[in-house]
Design a protein around this nucleic acid. Structure first.
Lengths: 347, 347
DNA sequence: TTGTAAGCGTTATCAT
DNA sequence: ATGATAACGCTTACAA
């Protein structure tokens, strides 16, 4: 590999001079600069980032620690990180803890993940990244997984209780409020919800958003049409079947993710109730498959890409200590209208 | 950060000695080794990979160049790479060309991607990775995207015509042959296919597999039930509608991806034909959503994870020049039986 | 405006 | 069995 030394030699200057023109630092006469640039071109010189990193103690690479790349949220967030990173000359060192395959979806509590983390973190610290972005697999508390003293870190799709950390997430409360309001505007008065497990923050937040929309519109809150699912297809199917069996079934269902919404649609098909003619359904997440369902699912889109962008922006701001960085950024979801909602039949 | 020098000082030895025990090289007496180890522990020493890399000219990290992380195949392949890499002490530097967002799905030909690649590659070469894995977004020829002299490279989910390169892909021909044979065993004689675009290798290979299965079973090949889709939902829907309108509609459809299969199911639903009672459908890819469709889709699973593992295995073998590495590895797909296929009605 | 040289944290050669 | 030291490719104070 051709180095700065080779360039210096060929251009009859010192390595310092070459370094100066390379970095635009120092005061170099126009003609030597031109000559050096020419040699650099001719020899197809590529700077060695490793040497530079060693000297500068900055690698211009950030560690992306992801609980599982394979989780539906990860790729799009990484894409966002990438977009911003590329524009700012950062590279990404990817560390995948693979918790889904190692632990299974049931045991993703902080305790178990913490056992997986140390070696991953150690590895990444050895490689001397400048900062860390941690991508969770569920929006939950992950305090303690990354040692407190590690590096500037921003968490996305999760959070910690640590004073020093930074987060970027989305606004669950508002999203559910808007989804519910949308249904109400369509004339629905009897809106069931199939929630996720209630030990999860998003479930609670979304429920609160729903509840507030019901209250703000002077509707009556009916606890019997609130069903606690577990995020999986089968729970969406089962609870919808239950709902459909009631004397006066709801005219709309808000499912807290698209998978349960798909389950709900399945239950409807089985019982011959038509979506959206007989019942409206709105999902959550805007998974790719939502538009492959029949009918295509109306759902709340998560701002995953933007979360990646914002996480990376926060981190670079942190690293350059440029102004102050928002500690707990919350992005907005947007409703994607497709074909699973119709106006309530006038009564 | 505590360095080898600090350790040496505290343990009253030279840096060389510390390096020896750290690497198990050299001949160190048991008691000094123990003492040094103890100091290392006490000071919580972490080796500096950057310095090591500079000296050794090996970084123990490999560059993963992916055309788009966001594409359905990427995450699982990366996960496979990760699994193998972790076991062998390699880190992953991720470079995402983001072609889907930059170019759109229509213009992903090699020409356009080639314009995106150079800066990405330059960047990654500067960071001195030991080797490269290139993950395509479609199985197609990507010759010329990565400069020939770059680094040991293995391609997956794509290929080149370059003698020096290595590939790992899956066996399209066999997969289609097996899917078709499965349908034939279920008694189907009239099996339509909705293919992808015919300028794509997989489309041709899969068609050949289908054709051979038809021949091997002495069925008659009917070109009127071969439809050329474009991989998208709408084409699956439209061609199925056509197929269903025939005097004697096929009793089964082989769709060359799950998205078109979903479209096919949608068309069936619209026309009131029941899957699988009236018509059987098998897809291709085993996308996550296949089991959220109604009925759950029977489909060929792509060995994505294994492709990642094997790609990384090939690359590490290449780097350690241990034995010879298979130039063009082809993995097998496996049929996932769900609920979209039923035996043909006895005629 | 340019050059000299020390130093970043390692490894490895050559002495001892 | 252990130590001194040059070298990896770069940046940067300081000197010239």
């Amino acid at each position: 590999m051709t180095s700065i030394k080779d360039i210096a030699q060929r251009a009859n200057v010192s390595t310092a001079t070459v370094s100066y023109v390379l970095n635009g630092t120092g005061n170099i006469s126009e003609k030597t600069r031109a000559r050096i640039l020419q040699v650099i071109e001719a020899m197809n010189y590529q700077p060695n980032h490793i040497a530079k990193s060693l000297k500068l103690k900055k690698t211009k690479t950030i560690g992306v620690v992801v609980e599982d790349v394979t989780s539906f949220n990860s790729a799009e967030i990484i894409d966002g990180i990438n977009e911003y990173a590329e524009d700012h000359g950062f590279s990404l060192l990817l560390t995948n803890m693979r918790v889904l395959k190692r632990l299974g979806n049931e045991r993703i509590d902080t305790e178990h993940v913490r056992q997986l983390a140390p070696s991953a973190i150690k590895e990444i610290l050895s490689k001397k990244v400048d900062g860390l972005i941690y991508i969770g697999i569920h929006t939950r508390d992950v305090t303690g997984i990354i040692p407190d003293n590690a590096l500037p870190t921003v968490y996305t799709y999760c959070y910690t209780t640590n004073e020093r950390d930074f987060f970027v997430n989305y606004n669950d409360h508002l999203a559910a409020y808007e989804a519910t309001t949308y249904l109400i505007r369509k004339g629905h008065r009897n809106i069931a919800v199939i929630s996720g497990l209630f030990n999860s923050n998003p479930s609670r937040e979304r429920f609160n958003g729903y509840y507030q929309a019901i209250m703000d519109n002077q509707l009556v809150f009916d606890p019997t049409i609130i069903k606690t699912g577990d995020w999986e297809f089968e729970s969406g199917r089962r609870f919808t079947a239950e709902l459909l069996g009631a004397d006066e079934p709801p005219t709309a269902i808000l499912a807290m993710n698209d998978i349960m919404a798909a389950g709900a649609m399945s239950a409807c098909a089985e019982q011959g109730v038509r979506v959206p003619d007989d019942i409206s359904i709105v999902g959550f997440d805007d998974r790719e498959f939502s538009s492959y369902l029949n009918p295509k699912l109306t759902t709340m889109r998560l701002p995953l890409h933007e979360m990646g962008v914002e996480a990376m922006r926060s981190l670079t701001d942190l690293l350059s200590q440029s102004g102050d960085v928002e500690k707990d950024k919350k992005l907005q979801c947007t409703l994607i209208e497709r074909n699973s909602v119709a106006p309530a039949k006038s009564c």
